[in-house]
Amino acid sequence: MGLSMECRDSDSPWVAQVWRSTSARVDSMTSVASPHWELVIWEEAGRVNANLQGPESRASIAPVPQDATFFGITFALGTWMPHLAVSQLVDSSAPLPDTTRRSFYLRGSAWHLPTFDNAEAFVRRLVREDILVSDPVVTSVLAGREPEVSARTAQRRFVASTGLTRGAIRQIERAREAALLIQGGAPAGEVVHRLGYFDQPHLARSLSRFVGRTATQLSARTEEEAMSLPYKTGPLDSA
């Protein structure tokens, strides 16, 4: 068994991905580094919880509650909540108070729990209420356009809206792509060339830091080695 996960892309510019999963007979997982922050809602032992999960700057081992169900909205880079410092959430999380099966509290108001199917409607309401905003400088840089501000200002805006520098985001995204390529059967040497690593030791250090796996382990992954790396759309599948 392990973790079964379903992910889907979103047509919302505010959302990177929507996902849900279930756990069975797994105690822990490798949580792979991610530049995104998320809203995560889960139920275990009849109790519903909600967290704002911050970006993860490195791979870590995370506990997994038994027989739990999870749902998450992964927000697009550059999307943030001005009342909440994303930098304080890096490698951490903030529980949302008074969470029940129907609602939770966010910035002093009760909000109905979103679902896998209505996540975009929930996000649109956050935007209308000015709880969720997008930084145009960050989205412009991510789209490959030159920002109309200084490099120092752009860097400051990146850290404010993502909690990470642009360089850190690039490193994390490259390591995630490398891991997916290796899982798909690409040789390490080919990955080095395709993604611009200096050499195989450079790739190995990146995988160890951001993915928590060696190239050999990724190539021979078993069900017992649960990871938070699917980030591909598709039906429920064991991770």
Rank of each mutant, 00 (worst) to 15 (best):
Y105C: 13
V137Y: 01
W111N: 05
E6Y: 02
T100N: 10
W37L: 03
F104E: 00
S140V: 04
S31G: 10
F71C: 04
D130V: 12
L164K: 00
R213T: 06
E148P: 05
D199R: 13
S12Q: 04
F198S: 14
E146Y: 14
E6P: 00
L229I: 15
L132R: 04
S34D: 10
A175N: 02
R205P: 04
V149I: 10
E173S: 07
R209F: 06
R156V: 01
I169E: 00
A16L: 05
R125Y: 08
T22H: 09
S161N: 06
H202S: 13
A62Y: 14
T233V: 11
S161L: 05
R8D: 05
R205Q: 15
A59R: 00
S161Y: 01
D98P: 03
R25S: 12
S87M: 07
A76C: 09
W111G: 03
E129H: 08
V48I: 15
R101F: 12
I131P: 02
P35E: 02
L142Q: 03
T30R: 15
R125H: 12
G108W: 06
V192C: 06
R156C: 03
P95L: 07
H193S: 14
T139S: 15
T216S: 15
V64D: 00
A188H: 03
R166S: 11
L180H: 15
D117I: 10
S161D: 02
Q200V: 13
Q200W: 10
V15R: 00
C7Y: 10
P35C: 09
M81S: 15
A175S: 11
G212M: 02
S23W: 00
E177P: 05
A239E: 10
L181P: 00
L106M: 11
S161V: 05
R107P: 04
S57E: 07
D98S: 12
D98A: 09
A178C: 10
E6V: 11
A179C: 08
P63L: 08
A179L: 01
Q200H: 12
A110V: 08
E120V: 12
W42G: 02
R221A: 11
A143Y: 09
A186F: 08
L207D: 00
L106D: 03
V64F: 03
N49C: 14
T79D: 09
V32D: 03
S140Y: 04
W111K: 04
E146I: 11
P13C: 05
R25H: 14
S87G: 10
D117E: 13
V26G: 03
G212L: 04
S87L: 05
W111S: 03
E129Y: 11
G196N: 09
A154P: 02
T153S: 14
P65D: 06
T22F: 06
Q171M: 10
S87H: 09
S103P: 02
P147C: 05
A186C: 11
A226Y: 01
L181K: 08
T100M: 06
P230S: 07
R166P: 03
H112F: 12
N51R: 12
L77I: 07
S92L: 07
A76Y: 04
V90D: 01
V149S: 06
G212S: 09
V191A: 03
A186R: 04
T115C: 07
D130Y: 13
N49F: 15
A168I: 05
L106T: 07
T22R: 09
E129P: 01
W19Y: 12
I169W: 00
S12I: 04
W14T: 06
